[in-house]
Amino acid sequence: MRDTDYNFAYLDEQTKRMIRRAILKGVAVPGYQVPFASREMPMPYGWGTGGVQVTAACLTPEDTLKVIDQGADDTTNAVSIRKFFEKTAEIAVTERTAEATIIQTRHRIPETPLTEAQILVYQVPMPEPLRFLEPSEVETRKMHALQDYGLMHVKLYEDIARHGEIATAYSYPVMVEDRYVMSPSPIPKFDNPRLVSAALQLFGAGREQRIYAVPPHTRVVSLDFEDHPFDPSKAPHPCALCGAEDSYLDEVITDDRGSRMFVCSDTDYCAGRRGEAA
């Protein structure tokens, strides 16, 4: 008997079973949004209630958990979710990507390549990629069912017509296994190529009550035009701290006279490189 008053990982066993069934269905149909009975969690919507429920359903006592928010381990959201599971599940936690078995993330994929022994859980605010084009849920579900995706390209067309290039920089729509168009949650489009991964990727949207999944080594293609191909762009600088040229950068304003620096958004990756350099 553990000395906490919570059931393991907060949720009761029946709820976890229900979520696991949704996850299994999601894995069986990559990219398809499975409805599930999302629970009230002890945190507000938009703070990762969907991701927390998926993580809770996947956790075992032997797991090591890492939580990141915009790539960083030490932001409020990441710290509080990590504490939440330390308290309710008494599992080991880490900030090292390579040591974690489950990684819950908001808005980033870690720079360090993931392995088949890892699960990446995304917090998703808006699971429906077609939502801002088509307000009706009935209609968007029909569009998914019939693979009726012309509208998605209308959005990219509008981008080019207005900005001269595809200006969508995050939440860039992808096609999963030539079947479902999926929103990769608001990760920067720089991360899109890494959606093809060895790790199992699970997406949980608490408020919208949807779970979807990308199983390991699934084909994920970013949508584009033949004459305007997909471009995973990033700020054209090296990291000011570790010098990395291949990582996604955050722009940090350092004073009120226009000084700025670009640093890795993945804090573990940056710290690891500096450890190596020192």
Binding site: D148, H153, V154, Y157, E158, A161, F225
Partner: peptide, 27 residues
């Protein structure tokens, strides 16, 4: 019509719906 999408996008929608994927040609 889709009132929030440009005239060009409105005309191009049917083309894209039947599989056109070349921006220059659609335009």
């Amino acid at each position: 019509l889709r009132m929030r999408i440009s005239a060009g996008g409105n005309v191009g929608e049917r083309l894209m719906a039947v599989g056109a994927r070349h921006y220059g040609e659609i335009r």
